[in-house]
Design a protein around this nucleic acid. Structure first.
Lengths: 294, 294
DNA sequence: CGGTAATTTGATAAAAGTCAACGTCTGTGG
DNA sequence: CCACAGACGTTGACTTTTATCAAATTACCG
């Protein structure tokens, strides 16, 4: 029913074989010798927390795992053994419903934790697929739980990871429950901008790793609506779009689309109509702007 | 902007005064002597978990708090000191956005935990308002965290509470991202039915404690759409509705509306058209059934 | 290079929102 | 006890938004 089946195919095995890693080891931590490891204390800053300087942490390391675009980090139903902390790259988290339709739940990137949804049942609830070459730290959950029992700072780290899920939940309720298609997409672009910026990348020029369909699934929209809205944003001068490359040209304008109450403020350079006026204009490329409301 | 302001008003204080509880004590645990307490081991079954028979649990009790309809359990920004486990009653969890609009995030009822969203930041992120007279156990979080460190079963309880939030998150993504208004409302009714049933109440007759507006906010719909859809369900014979009293007359039919792939199966008693056909018919009470698609 | 997936765009239909009016319940105070 | 105010709910007419269907174009992978 879905044409993105390629993502769900097992990746070609010959690379794994070439590295003398049995295919079955995908999904667990045995591949550590291949891709090195990272010290816990070095991982913590990425997660936005500080670990105490307790010397016992000096020895704690976690294996790294490299994932190529299209490969699966874990699937729904796999045994939950570890959570993953993304060090680089880009993923999609998806759930396949009873009818086989794919629902994108999130786009984890560097600094995000993956796999917490398996803690309770002992099985992951989602598929996680890399959309770009990625690198993750594999954190065996029993080990993390033990560290959390012994160290208040790790306990707080664990709570913080859960908490981010709840913050994301609230943000998405708001997005899906109250925003128009335009506002959802503006919000999505601003969110990516913020996240890339926090990681040290450009806040205004970045690549969408996801297809229009994946973006639409995440935002509760159809792919055509995503495409049209991006085109309209481009026509309004808010962004420049070249396929999956995005350049934000008027961040404040995008913010105004998310929150109409916001003052349009002065545009970045040359004279322009307000972002919302420009959107209205570019929208009515269609028939005629008969904007005389009763 | 919102007419449900009454819920956000502080409840009349004279009752509190009559009980010699200062108004400031709403929101913390000082009122324990008024409403008794509950042993942890007696609370656990409600949460769907078993506690070990460790004798150290025998002494652990938590204070109870009674909340009347319209009263606030906690507000966004309040200091996070405790989580609450609902023993009886019905709440709404709401977030107020920058424009002052209210967004309903959930309807906690018996067995649900409230307040986990404060764990990370030390402040609750939401307002929680009782929609019915309710009774909650107040679980000071530092105490729970300590128990979790010492007892694996409490640790798992804590993970389980977070996990339920994630399951709810996925379910709501799916609801808000992929379902029509009809399917959302059918899904909502079935969810309430299931939750009431699990608590030992009727699965087919219950009261909506929330207004149409609150239900709509939760489901990402306008109150008129909620009202219309409930009326259409009633016209199709799927439910009987009297104001906030709901009787489910065709649970299987509601399931078919949520998941059209499902076989309509034989209707409960007398001959009826398929639920979806009935819905189509009752919908086109409006102009005429000109159903000749090109 | 060729085939497939991804994207864009248009025309149209369906869904849900908006605005408006009216009905109904409830609790309060005369 | 009844009248009334205000919140809640229902329904209709109409508009706007988004989905659907279709077709053409472009990019990417092998």
């Amino acid at each position: 029913m879905f044409d993105s089946a390629a993502y769900n195919e097992p990746p070609r095995e010959r690379f794994d074989e070439a590295r003398h890693v049995p295919a079955e080891s995908r999904g667990d931590a045995r591949c550590e010798s291949n891709w090195g490891s990272v010290r816990f204390v070095d991982l913590a800053p990425l997660l936005g927390v500080a670990l105490s300087s307790d010397p016992r942490f000096a020895d704690v390391t976690f294996p790294l795992r490299r994932i190529r675009a299209g490969e699966v980090l874990h699937r729904a139903g796999d045994a939950f053994k570890a959570i993953y902390v993304v060090r680089s790259g880009f993923f999609k988290t998806v759930s396949i419903d009873t009818a086989g339709a794919e629902l994108v739940l999130g786009f984890p990137m560097a600094g995000d934790a993956i796999g917490l949804d398996g803690v309770d049942s002992g099985r992951y609830l989602t598929d996680v697929v890399a959309l770009d070459i990625s690198n993750v730290a594999v954190i065996p959950f029993p080990q993390l739980a033990q560290l959390a029992r012994e160290h208040p700072c790790v306990e707080r780290l664990l709570y913080s990871m859960f908490s981010r899920e709840l913050v994301h939940k609230h943000a998405m309720f708001w997005l899906l429950g109250t925003l128009s298609a335009e506002a959802r997409i503006a919000s999505f672009l601003l969110d990516l901008s913020e996240r890339f910026g926090r990681l040290g990348y450009s806040r205004t020029a970045f690549a969408l790793r996801a297809t229009r369909q994946e973006i639409g699934s995440y935002l509760g929209l159809k792919l055509e609506t995503v495409s049209r809205t991006l085109s309209a944003f481009a026509a309004a001068g808010l962004v420049y779009i070249d396929r999956r490359e995005v350049t934000l040209r008027d961040v404040e304008g995008l913010r105004c689309i998310v929150d109409p109450a916001r003052q349009p403020s002065e545009p970045p350079r040359v004279h322009q109509p307000s972002p919302r006026a420009a959107m209205r204009a570019s929208r009515s490329l269609r028939p005629a702007p008969l904007a005389m409301a009763g």
